[in-house]
């Protein structure tokens, strides 16, 4: 008993994946960066935090594939470790958003129209009214800048996104016959939310999660760029861009590589999100058939 037809077998899912070019490009790009982040735990060409002033501002060559920065650090290694920072911050932030936002949204839908619904949704509106950057500035003003505070800021911003999404889609499910029969069978709101509503909005959450993940990477880069994200010496793409700013005429490679890293990761995750939506959203899928 589910909201949409699950008759498609595994082979046809695979066929659909292969047919969706954007999904494949997205998956490949995301895999490259997630792979780079994972590999960086065990190996980077150079120590990403080791300064070597005499070899500063080297253009890309066989030794330093992406050149070196103004402290002589290897940019390729920094991008690998920076991927780790970006992915970790964005992933945890999205996790916070899902873990707090989805239960709030489900509770809100279960008590639709009640005071709990009002409190949760108006609270969401309040958080939504502040941009993530502003929240980050407020948090760092109190606790000082760090990667953890960037995670909290981006995470807080993600809560209403998931709360609204799950409330909206849960509301339409609450009117379905199978939910009605579950209620008749005597199941409480909590059990219905977990057993019947949550599995049926999972596909939407996955798609939204992918998109929020890419926004999180962008937000982390933005916060680091203005100095509110991960603090030196931990490499971060946003700070690499900020560092390159005054050197852009002298050493354009310092800006190009982290810039491309952000662009391609965000592009990859967005394409993946798009592709997943084509694959998972029942309405779109039925329309295509």
């Amino acid at each position: 008993m589910t909201a949409f037809d699950t008759s498609s077998n595994e082979a046809s899912v695979l066929r659909q994946v292969l047919r969706s070019r954007s999904l494949i490009i997205g998956l490949v790009l995301s895999a490259v960066f997630i792979g780079a982040a994972l590999v960086s735990y065990v190996w980077t060409p150079f120590d990403a935090e080791a300064l070597n002033i005499p070899t500063k501002l080297k253009t890309p060559d066989a030794v330093h594939w992406f050149g070196t920065d103004h402290f002589g650090r290897d940019i390729f290694s920094m991008i690998m470790v920076g991927a780790r920072t970006s992915i970790a911050v964005a992933l945890i932030a999205v996790g916070i958003g899902i873990l707090l936002g989805v239960p709030l949204g489900l509770a809100s839908a279960a008590r639709s129209g009640g005071w709990l619904d009002e409190v949760i949704m108006r609270g969401n509106d309040l958080v939504f009214a502040f941009p993530a950057l502003l929240i980050a500035i407020m948090i760092t003003a109190v606790f000082g800048p760090s990667a953890v505070n960037a995670i909290i800021a981006i995470g807080i911003f993600n809560i209403p996104v998931f709360a609204r999404l799950s409330r909206g889609s849960a509301l339409s499910l609450w009117t379905r016959d199978y939910v009605l029969s579950a209620r008749v069978a005597g199941k409480g709101a909590l059990r219905i939310s977990i057993e019947h509503i949550l599995p049926n909005i999972m596909n939407l959450l996955i798609v939204q999660g992918t998109i929020q993940f890419s926004l999180g990477i962008l937000a982390e880069a933005g916060l680091s760029y203005v100095g509110l994200g991960a603090q030196p010496p931990i490499p971060s793409w946003g700070r690499m861009l900020a560092d390159s700013q005054t050197l852009i005429t002298l050493a354009p490679h310092m800006a190009l590589f982290p810039g491309f890293a952000i662009l391609l990761t965000v592009l990859g995750l967005n394409l993946m999100g798009d592709g997943l939506r084509d694959l998972l959203d029942p309405r779109l899928r039925n329309a295509r058939r």
């Binding site: 935090e49 300064l51 002033i53 103004h70 402290f71 030196p232 010496p233």
Partner: peptide, 10 residues
């Protein structure tokens, strides 16, 4: 800011 990063590593 820059001096700090160098000193931190030294």
């Amino acid at each position: 800011r820059r001096g700090g990063e160098i000193i931190a590593s030294q």
